[in-house]
Design a protein around this nucleic acid. Structure first.
Lengths: 154, 154
DNA sequence: AATTAACTTAGTGTTTTACTCGGTAATTAA
DNA sequence: TTAATTACCGAGTAAAACACTAAGTTAATT
């Protein structure tokens, strides 16, 4: 498993889609502006997401992107694996030095951990995140008093 | 949270320490050979681990490294944070565009997820991994029959 | 004094990031 | 039919991160 800022970009972009894609397709320009990601970089990410059928593109004016599946059928692991490319855990998969030695044990421990992380992220869907986030939005909106948020415009 | 091969190196190295550091200190040369990591790179990683007191070095002949704390008090998150440097999640922490807008919501969803991953890895200690791995070792040793493992040599 | 092994610093080739730029293809509105 | 819009595609690129080499210094053991 691998989790970099690239994966973060993909997840936040997909979250954006999940939140805004209800009424119609969402353009990459919108996401670019919303999330502060360059348009071309988004195009690269979405090429990978499209290859895995996680999004569906619609060309022409009024076009944009939809989720490729319902939000509750897209896990975080799906998204990260699409853009971040699964890396080989260990180098000794079936190699000659894997005969119950110390090295093999350490590596199998890492494999176990890696699988645990993967399973964990497989259980979390976009829909889960959105649902959990919307609950908290209430709390967020009701704390206007705190900090006053620099309304310096007038 | 960030999880790269660098973090993997650190975790496997620490696992090596947890497994072999019972009777005495473990040298970086040993770990280098066991795990297939270059000595100098290990030295860099261990400089970071030592700064966080996750390991303790002993100089001179017969020296090496010990765990800085008992294995059940060292979490995977501790290790990864030591070498992988915590990255900023969102760019809008307290920025002007965080007034309940769409962007803020997406980012707070990412923050939630990131915290979940962190909490998950905080709950897993080196001791947990070792204990769980030793259980499976029995199974591993008793499945000689399966797959035959390409003993093509003769 | 010689050896061991931790510690430190500098440098280096490779890969990954995140991006710009230039274009093509499909769809819509005029 | 033409122009605008948006997805789609590929090459190139500066900067960072990765993983490593090299060449030392310091502290401990023999």
């Amino acid at each position: 498993m691998r989790l970099s800022t690239k994966g973060r970009y993909a997840v936040t972009a997909m979250l954006d889609l999940a939140l805004n894609g209800q009424e119609g397709p969402v353009t990459l320009s919108d996401i670019s502006e919303n999330q502060g990601i360059s348009l071309s970089y988004l195009e690269q990410l979405f090429a990978a997401l499209r290859a895995r059928k996680l999004v569906r593109g619609v060309r022409g004016p009024g076009g944009g992107y939809f989720l490729g599946r319902p939000a509750d059928e897209i896990s975080i692991a799906d998204i990260i694996c699409a853009v971040d490319e699964w890396v080989e855990f260990t180098r000794c998969r079936g190699k000659e030095d894997c005969r119950g030695g110390q090295r093999c044990l350490t590596h199998s421990l890492w494999d176990d951990l890696s699988r645990q992380i993967y399973d964990f992220l497989t259980d979390i869907t976009l829909a889960d995140l959105v649902a959990r986030g919307l609950e908290k939005e209430q709390t967020c909106h009701s704390r206007k008093d705190s900090a006053t948020l620099e309304t310096r415009a007038a």
